[in-house]
Structure formats: structure tokens, C-alpha cells
């Protein structure tokens, strides 16, 4: 399957979805005005990937800022992983800076709302 790479901009994150390297990562900043359009290709890609995923899929979120518009799309991404989990061993890792209690709280919120294994990882 073709990998999906979206370069970061000043208000949208870097996206790497690369089954060959087994890297699935959303990082940096996500505060676009129109989050719906931005995350559409990601959700479409995951829908295809769910058909024949890798044996293991570790999906990493390493985000510095997430605005509310993005937070609704990020949960869609995580829910799509539930579908992937039917054929793959899925783990979600949510990184947050130790001093950023809001990112920690958001991670905990997602963890509570989804059924895939969800790990919060504190970074310095």
C-alpha cells in the first residue's frame, strides 16, 4: 500500500503513514481552521489500510497543540484504528510533555472513549 506523507505546516501536523517502514505517526501542531478537510485523506487512507494491515500497528501521536476542531478529527482517526484492530495488533501511543496537563487530559479522555490499547507516554 502507498504510504501517506503530509509535510507539517505552521498550523497542521506532519503525518507519516508508512506500512513498509511500519511507522504511523502524527506529530507537531494541529490547529487548522478547517480540520475536517485536513484529516479527510488520513481517514480515507486508514479505511483502505484496514483491509490488509500489518501484523502490528503502533500509531503514535506526538502533538504539541490540538485545537478543538482537530480534537474531533483525532478521535475519528483513533476510532478508525478500531477497525484496523480487527486484523492487526494495534497500539496507540499518546505522547505529552510532562508540563502540559491539557495534552495529558486530552489523552486520558481519548483513552476512556476508545477500545484500542491506548498508552500515555510522558516526555520531558
Amino acid at each position: 500500500m502507498e504510504k501517506l506523507f503530509i509535510e507539517e505546516t505552521e498550523d497542521t501536523p506532519e503525518i507519516i503513514l508508512d506500512p513498509e517502514q511500519n511507522i504511523f505517526k502524527i506529530s507537531k501542531i494541529s490547529v487548522p481552521e478547517n480540520a475536517l478537510d485536513f484529516y479527510k485523506p488520513v481517514l480515507d487512507w486508514l479505511k483502505d489500510y484496514a483491509e490488509s494491515p500489518n501484523v502490528q500497528t503502533v500509531f503514535e501521536f506526538d502533538l504539541e497543540y490540538v485545537n478543538t476542531a482537530s480534537s474531533k478529527q483525532v478521535i475519528q482517526v483513533i476510532l478508525s484504528l478500531q477497525k484496523v484492530a480487527e486484523k492487526s495488533d494495534v497500539k496507540v501511543r499518546w505522547y505529552y510533555e510532562s508540563i502540559d496537563e491539557d495534552m495529558k487530559a486530552l489523552g486520558n479522555r481519548y483513552k476512556k472513549l476508545v477500545s484500542v490499547p491506548f498508552e500515555l507516554v510522558e516526555i520531558e
Binding site: L36, T68, A69, S71, K72, I75, Q76, D102, A105, R109, K112, L113
Partner: peptide, 27 residues
């Protein structure tokens, strides 16, 4: 309430649900 709106995909427009205000108040 915040959880509910996060999972309410019928209302795609976050502005209509008060998600921003809820988020501000929580933070």
C-alpha cells in the same frame, strides 16, 4: 458533555456545539 460532542459526528461543525467554549472552560 465534552465526550458526547467529541463523539457526535452528525454535527460536523464544532462551532455549533460549544466545543470551543467547553474546552476553554475546562482548560
Amino acid at each position: 458533555y465534552y465526550d458526547d460532542i467529541l463523539l457526535d459526528f452528525d454535527t460536523a461543525d464544532a462551532k455549533k456545539t460549544g466545543l470551543g467554549f467547553s474546552d476553554l472552560r475546562i482548560k
